[in-house]
Amino acid sequence: MDHASSFGAAAAAYAEHRPDYAPAAVRWALETAPGPRVLDLGAGTGKLTATLVAAGAAVTAVEPDPAMLSELRSALPGVRALSGSAEHIPLPDGSVDAVLAGNAMHWFDMDVAGPEIARVLAPGGVLAGLWNTVDDGVEWVAGLAEVSGSAAIGPRDTPASWRAETAAMFPAGFGSAEQAGFAHGQVRTAGSLVATLGTRAGMLVMPDGEREAALGRIRAYLASRPETAAGEFTLPMLTCVLRTRRIQTTA
């Protein structure tokens, strides 16, 4: 199973267990946008969409996976939600003031998606990617990352790896990129955190036996830690943002 197409089979679990995004991160992503029209590109089940709606944006969501799109429409019936992809955006030229992508931009074919994103952006429009990372500056979280392995906590999933992986991600036609991180957290239990990590793309494409063994190691680790062994706890996170603006050209 391809990583990028692995989520649909677990759409309900993704909707239940994946975190939302720090409101401060969304505000920063949008602060230089020329207007309120925002495209949530690769919107999944609507985790970022919901935060954008709460921020007062006029949101259009675009998602290629039918199961994920169905979850989004069920959760957010008032949002315009369309089938499409970063490489084929079903919107007119210059129709949005910002394009945001939540934990999705690394799946885009930027050679094709870059010109498409530039096409739908108004002059001076913003392009921003948001990623939720675990804060491995916290000792028990660093231990969790080590036990989980790269299939569950891998590239872009910790602040340092995120900075390195995204530094050169933006396509031609956009200005210099800025990076910032914003404190966030997700209330979890040991069981729900295991379920969350089970929705990672690397886990979803594992053979069943390997996935269950990996999840078993994570369960054992969480049971061994006083921070996570009993009841609810907050998983320390950062919502990391990479933003730029479309370069305005003159005729």
Results as ranks from 00 to 15, higher is better:
251 A>E: 15
192 S>Q: 06
172 A>G: 15
51 T>Y: 07
106 H>R: 03
61 A>E: 10
183 A>W: 06
102 G>Q: 04
235 L>D: 04
246 R>I: 00
25 A>H: 10
67 A>R: 15
185 G>M: 01
84 G>Y: 02
221 Y>L: 12
122 A>P: 10
171 P>Y: 08
103 N>F: 02
207 P>S: 07
87 E>M: 02
229 A>W: 11
67 A>P: 05
203 M>I: 07
17 H>W: 10
189 T>V: 08
231 G>D: 04
161 S>V: 12
182 F>M: 11
164 A>C: 07
217 R>N: 12
108 F>A: 10
180 A>Y: 03
108 F>I: 01
195 A>S: 14
190 A>M: 02
10 A>Q: 14
139 E>A: 15
2 D>I: 00
101 A>R: 01
212 E>S: 14
75 A>H: 11
222 L>Q: 07
13 A>K: 11
136 D>L: 09
130 L>P: 08
95 S>L: 11
28 W>V: 02
74 S>K: 15
44 G>P: 07
52 L>R: 12
106 H>E: 06
25 A>I: 01
99 V>M: 06
207 P>H: 12
82 L>Y: 06
78 G>D: 15
25 A>V: 10
146 E>D: 14
101 A>F: 01
142 A>Y: 06
112 V>S: 13
47 K>N: 02
224 S>T: 07
18 R>F: 00
86 A>G: 15
93 D>K: 02
181 G>K: 15
193 L>I: 06
21 Y>Q: 05
56 G>E: 13
210 E>T: 13
40 D>G: 06
34 P>G: 09
179 Q>L: 15
108 F>K: 05
221 Y>I: 08
134 V>Y: 04
29 A>L: 07
79 V>I: 13
91 L>P: 01
145 A>T: 01
239 T>I: 07
10 A>P: 09
62 V>L: 08
131 W>K: 03
228 T>M: 04
62 V>S: 05
75 A>C: 04
